[in-house]
Write a protein that binds this DNA or RNA. Sequence first.
DNA 1: CAGGGGAAAATTTGATCATATTGTGATCGC
DNA 2: GCGATCACAATATGATCAAATTTTCCCCTG
Lengths: 227, 227
Amino acid sequence: MDLIKNKAVSQVSGDQKQPAHEQVYQTLRAQIMYGDLVPGQPVTIQGLTDSLGVGMTPVREAIRRLISDGALVFQGNRRVSVPLLKDSDVGQMIFARIAIESELSRRATLNMSKAEIDALARIDQRLDRTIADGDVGGYLRLNHQFHQTLYAHADAPILNDLAESLWLRFGPSLRVVCGRFGTQSLPDRHKDIVSALRDQDPQRVAKATAQDIEQGMELMAGALSTS
Amino acid sequence: MDLIKNKAVSQVSGDQKQPAHEQVYQTLRAQIMYGDLVPGQPVTIQGLTDSLGVGMTPVREAIRRLISDGALVFQGNRRVSVPLLKDSDVGQMIFARIAIESELSRRATLNMSKAEIDALARIDQRLDRTIADGDVGGYLRLNHQFHQTLYAHADAPILNDLAESLWLRFGPSLRVVCGRFGTQSLPDRHKDIVSALRDQDPQRVAKATAQDIEQGMELMAGALSTS
DNA sequence: CAGGGGAAAATTTGATCATATTGTGATCGC
DNA sequence: GCGATCACAATATGATCAAATTTTCCCCTG
């Protein structure tokens, strides 16, 4: 929905001479990660060429990239759709996210200045407001931004790629869960993370990150199994 | 080198009407993982269309997928090349591989029948022969096949994807190391893995896998830092 | 005579290619 | 050494072909 709108926005925003296939990739990526596309929903090339106003080659390339990312799945009959997670998928993700993102948090801890920690705390404050307002879209974006900002300081591009790949996979399902249960019940261990960061205590930061992840994912697992 | 040869082979082998972009992807993926392409070597679209005998659209799609896999890197000026690992990259990979692949081993242990363990042991025997013969290409393929076969029994597609992504990233560099030091010095904890599998001891399987990974990766790290 | 099953046509979507356009790097002249 | 021009490679589009799904219509059966 409103795919054309997004294109217009991306044209206005300060993008200078980025190739079209990159634009399409970023646009679709955001739509998937923040749940604008429903799990199970089919994604067609021609539909995107029409709504985005670009040729089919850039669209095809963007779709291929997203398939390799695990953000889209190839359904055999050369149909592509947004993946729907199973219970066992969530279990694997809990394990992988805790392993990788705890390590990213640990590595980031000693690299962050006071100002950078403050910036992180400000993101969390805005996040609280979205939860209070029941703004699901805002919550998804800011929650991702919080973790992304933290992990960026770990200076570990490969681990970062792995983490991003996982976020991309559970994004659509998380949206569904939030839509069903609202934002009130969402856990938020971010206060603990920020506090541990100020103390420069890598172990506590990693532990708090793991708890944040586990609570969020368990909630999702529960919601998916009762669907 | 010999890109046309590979195409011919893939046409002969039992592939029935797989789309060309999938073929190209598989071909390039194998060439990267098993080190037929040297790190730092530029990859051009037109070069591949000529050597593979297909149009540029399938080639473009395959390259995009491999970039998302981390198997190729986009060098900014719309140049694409095989990545060259840095020390810190190897450090991240050691952590991620041990975390993910140990878990895969653990999960696979109780799922494997006696016959399947025997098949794994046979792969390892063939592997020993390639080491004795100094057959680097054969070693890379069989080593991968050993781990891949083991992990396939874990029934964990997401963790499997993550592991494959990592293998794809260090493949070219591993080839370089093997080429420099030969196959004699390569570690092989596979005997321990098989033995622990026969005992149905998940913890020992995981431990042996972690040791196998650590030894191999440390060797690679040492070789890369002295280059 | 009505309802359901199946086959064939039509529409929709995907895959590939050929071509035009644009941007980048290199070379040659000043 | 610096700047303009030239050549080449990548990007993007539209056209064309192939495959799959859906729809429709006819025939058979109850």
